[in-house]
């Protein structure tokens, strides 16, 4: 065997994936606390679907199924998708999205390490375009709900598509971002809108805490050196700056930066999605360009686009630019372009 003869103890792809999954747990806990057990059911459904789809594709492609199945990458894709879509939804929604992510976005593009587009975001985009109505039925925070949905009821809804004695509208509502957009279109003023019960101190009730938990998990990933600071910092700073600019111009129409940072997929996107190794740039400068671009597009799509949140589309758009970004941001190599004395 040729050198080197040693490896970093404990370093492996599965370890990285497991660490990222662990970093999501605080947010999942908050999700459960504020919105009930639906998220747990959809996480399980997504994981099972992802593993089944992954195993089938590995088998078809003549890969060692067990060796690759345990790398954790399929489960991570499943969790990111499950955390991005409404959890209280018929079973087929998450199954279709996850299967599409694994089969098409991941394996048809060459499998682990070769896919150009973020599989979870491809899954999200497919669902968003194919089932737009279902994708807007977000559960109401338990504290606001007249009828908190329990575990058995959630299961019942997930697999039968109906709730006994309750209308779906009674347990779901639009997201804070969606509400804001709709209300602004109705010419309501920002101050008035922000007093609606769905809004919390900074973002949405409950969702702002979940966002904070994503931030916590992201800091954990930074501390463990799983991700570098470049992408999340450039992403969040850009989003905040653009939001501050518009908020400064017209506070009545444009929400303040904190609102944008703590709603929707901003925190999840900045720390867990835009930092995806395979589909993001590899150079430090490239990561900053990528993060800033996604942050900017996120704002543009949220505020001026047709969708309530822009994380998936801004990521996918920028994924396509990654090879170009990498090619033009190569760092200076030792001994090249040295300063003359």
């Amino acid at each position: 065997m040729s050198s080197p003869h040693v490896l970093t103890p404990g370093s492996s792809v599965s370890n990285i994936m497991l660490t990222v999954l662990a970093a999501l747990i605080p947010a999942i806990g908050a999700y459960y606390y504020f919105f009930g057990p639906a998220i747990l059911i959809s996480l399980v459904l997504a994981s099972v679907t992802a593993l089944a789809a992954e195993a089938a594709m590995l088998q078809l492609r003549n890969y060692p199924v067990k060796y690759f199945l345990t790398d954790g990458s399929a489960v991570l894709t499943a969790w990111l998708l499950a955390l991005s879509i409404p959890p209280l939804a018929p079973w087929w929604l998450i199954v279709v999205g996850t299967a599409f992510a694994i089969v098409v976005a991941k394996h048809l593009y060459g499998g682990l390490g070769n896919n150009l587009f973020n599989p979870a975001m491809v899954g999200f985009a497919v669902l968003m375009i194919s089932f737009p109505a279902t994708m807007t039925h977000w559960p109401t925070p338990l504290m606001l709900s007249q009828h908190p949905v329990g575990f058995s009821e959630t299961l019942q809804y997930t697999f039968s598509g109906a709730l006994q004695g309750v209308k779906l509208d009674a347990v779901t509502m639009a997201t804070p971002l969606d509400t804001l957009k709709t209300q602004l279109n109705l010419q309501h003023a920002m101050g008035e809108i922000k007093n609606m019960p769905i809004f919390g101190s900074f973002g949405g009730k409950g969702t702002e805490v979940i966002a904070a938990m994503y931030l916590l998990g992201g800091l954990f990933l930074l501390q463990r050196r799983i991700i570098t600071w470049h992408t999340p910092v450039s992403f969040l700073v850009t989003l905040a700056l653009v939001a501050a600019l518009f908020n400064g111009i017209d506070p009545g129409r444009y929400a303040p930066p904190m609102f944008h940072l703590l709603t929707g997929g901003a925190m999840l996107g900045a720390f867990f999605i835009a930092t995806d190794y395979v589909t993001a740039p590899t150079t430090p400068r490239g990561k900053m360009i990528f993060g800033a671009s996604v942050g900017f597009l996120e704002y543009v799509i949220r505020v001026f686009g047709g969708y309530p949140d822009g994380i998936a589309f801004s990521i996918l758009i920028m994924n396509a630019a990654v090879p170009l970004i990498d090619a033009y941001t190569q760092p200076r190599v030792y001994g090249h372009d040295t300063k003359p004395e």
Binding site: Y277, V278, P331, V333
Partner: peptide
């Protein structure tokens, strides 16, 4: 395993 582009190598490379 396949390269997942994690850039641990680029961060460790003493030649940048």
């Amino acid at each position: 395993m396949p390269c997942i582009r994690c850039t641990q190598c680029a961060q460790a490379c003493p030649c940048d």
